[in-house]
Design a protein around this nucleic acid. Structure first.
Lengths: 222, 222
DNA sequence: CGCTTAGTTGAGTTCGTTCAACGACTGTGG
DNA sequence: CCACAGTCGTTGAACGAACTCAACTAAGCG
């Protein structure tokens, strides 16, 4: 275990900061690095040729960034910062060394990938089968809950995004997103704060969404 | 390499067959096994409390089944057979042995997980930002292409699903799915064959979908 | 032969979109 | 300090895509 910690430290080649709005990774490139997010919020997205954008998932502290690129080669999505970020930079070419020397860590990487897949499953269910109101409720309770799981000292949580981000996540137009969010606000479930959102009633939101919530889990250390 | 092959053989505890329509794994259970699909077609899905169903992805020969359950614990989706299946059964409790003794195989598992994630990303883009016609074109070209990649001896490919499956994948009603598929058929891109679909013009479909296609890749042996 | 499952089609309704305009706020240069 | 542009959020009205309801065909099977 201290062995693993030592390796993880050596695996790390440095830290990187990014400002809000910065694009960390771009679709189509062969990125040289693998990252872990240390602080801040970011999101992964893809775009169609004509510019339609879909946000795929959000990245919070502890999440790996760019694993797909490291494991497969080319990135097929982009990553952008929602807030100022601090990232931990790894050398992606030493990934096989990690799997070879520290099977526990290798398993952790797989665990993280499986976890990611699980979130995407939930998002797919949402996009495919929930109404606009349910979708919005799901998204905000999802993000609130993820943040809550990391937030040790129980601060007030503000989710740093614009309604355009919400629209691009839910697959809706901005106009209808706005009307939907106002409806949630009218129900006293959330509050909008210009470039950010606060969840007022998590249980209420989850009820509207018909969502069970994230399962409890212990995170690996990587 | 022969070492790895020998281990994979010992890792295998047997084969299992399932008939069309059989549910291999169910949401909420702690499955005892991990599988690889040897032949046939299946799909993963989730349902909302009121019965709305969303198909998340399709499973073709070579794909792992039940990895999430093995790595994390409880299954959060179900798996059903679209055709008669033959599955290879692994002991999930020996997964750590695999990671420990055969890092190359451990990496392969992660590779498969990353690959899966990539497909889900594409599906999300489709559900969120494509029109009904584009979505249907994407789905059918996606499935056709996946099948093509496995089909060594260039047989005619029939995708074994009903319009209800298509509807539950695209997030549409059956009625509208039908009208959309008829439109694709009218364009000479696909042909419907009762419980199955044949792609007549892959390039045409991909053009309608605005989709680049799956990137070439070599599969691991597991 | 009736029963079930899969697919088809039309009519009316609902949900979400597009278009358009406007208010509030922020930063920037004159 | 004010004028101006830019971003973000808000709202109404008209339109269109997709839904629901409902009826009907065709095929397969006991």
């Amino acid at each position: 275990m201290p062995e693993e910690l030592r390796f993880v430290s050596s695996f790390k080649t440095g830290e990187m900061v990014a400002e809000q709005g910065a694009v960390i990774l771009s679709e189509g490139t062969h990125s040289a690095h693998l990252y872990t997010l240390l602080s801040g919020w970011a999101f992964r997205f893809k775009t169609l040729a004509d510019g339609r954008r879909q946000i795929l998932n959000y990245i919070l502290p502890g999440d790996l960034v760019g694993l797909q690129g490291s494991v497969i080669g080319e990135m097929e999505h982009s990553v952008e910062a929602l807030s100022p970020l601090v990232l931990c930079v790894f050398q992606r070419d030493r990934l096989d060394e990690l799997f070879g020397g520290y099977p526990g860590l290798g398993f952790d990487v797989t665990w993280l990938a499986a976890q990611q897949e699980r979130m995407l499953d939930d998002h797919l269910l949402s996009l495919g089968r929930r109404t606009a109101l349910e979708r919005a409720a799901y998204l905000l309770s999802f993000l609130h809950q993820r943040s809550l799981a990391l937030n040790i000292r129980r601060e007030r949580i503000e989710i740093p995004l614009t309604q355009q981000h919400v629209a691009d996540t839910l697959g809706l137009s901005i106009v209808h997103t706005n009307k939907t969010l106002r409806k949630l606000a009218g129900l006293g479930l959330v509050r909008w704060l210009g470039r950010a959102c606060e969840v007022l009633d998590l249980d209420g939101l989850m009820k509207v969404a018909g969502w069970e919530g994230l399962s409890e889990r212990k995170r690996p250390l990587i």
